[in-house]
């Protein structure tokens, strides 16, 4: 079936099979392998991307259902100017080890920051219910998200001036 959608700011036309998942579309068809698949029960969150501005599990969305949608994956988070403040915060807080859960964590964290004007460690830990990490013990991920959210709000303030 033919769909047209926007992926990472670019218009994409694709003939997809009905059973093709968004994670398949990104990884196999578009070569955007930053989106990972870590489970088959829609729990682990390694595959989190944004669809129309909200974080979703791309392993649990049919590509064919995304006609006209806007999809953002980890590959589009950094800019020409460098890492996004949230990515930078993960780097500076040692919020990643093996890196496999990291793209999903960052995409989830961006949604958290967008929706939580008043971030706290407790709410971050709760938010991460759908993002598993087996390496870090989460501690530095929580610290990274708090730092990243603070940097984003700082940047927003500066842009607002």
């Amino acid at each position: 079936m033919h769909i047209s959608l926007t992926v990472n700011g670019k218009s994409v036309q694709a003939d997809v099979a009905p059973e093709e998942l968004l994670s398949d579309l990104l990884r196999e068809r578009l070569g955007l392998t930053g989106t990972h698949v870590g489970c088959d029960t829609s729990q682990c969150g390694a595959c989190v991307v944004h669809v129309d501005g909200r974080s979703v599990k791309s392993c649990t969305v049919l590509a064919v259902a995304l006609q006209g949608s806007t999809v953002t994956s980890i590959e589009a988070v950094a800019s020409a100017a460098g890492l996004h403040p949230m990515q930078k915060a993960f780097h500076e807080n040692h919020g990643l080890q093996c890196g496999f859960c990291t793209p999903g964590m960052v995409m989830s964290a961006l949604d958290y920051a967008a929706r939580n004007p008043d971030p706290s460690a407790e709410s971050v830990r709760h938010w991460l219910e759908g993002n598993f990490c087996r390496c870090t013990g989460y501690q530095n991920i929580v610290a990274a998200i708090l730092a990243g959210a603070a940097a984003m709000s700082e940047r927003a303030k500066e842009l607002g001036k």
């Binding site: 930053g34 980890i74 988070v77 890492l83 780097h91 890196g99 496999f100 990291t102």
Partner: peptide
């Protein structure tokens, strides 16, 4: 020292076998 390997993972440019 901040990790030298972070950049590729943070940008979604890791190279895992499934990729």
């Amino acid at each position: 020292l901040l990790r030298k390997e972070d950049q590729r993972f943070l940008m979604g440019r890791g190279n895992y076998v499934s990729d």
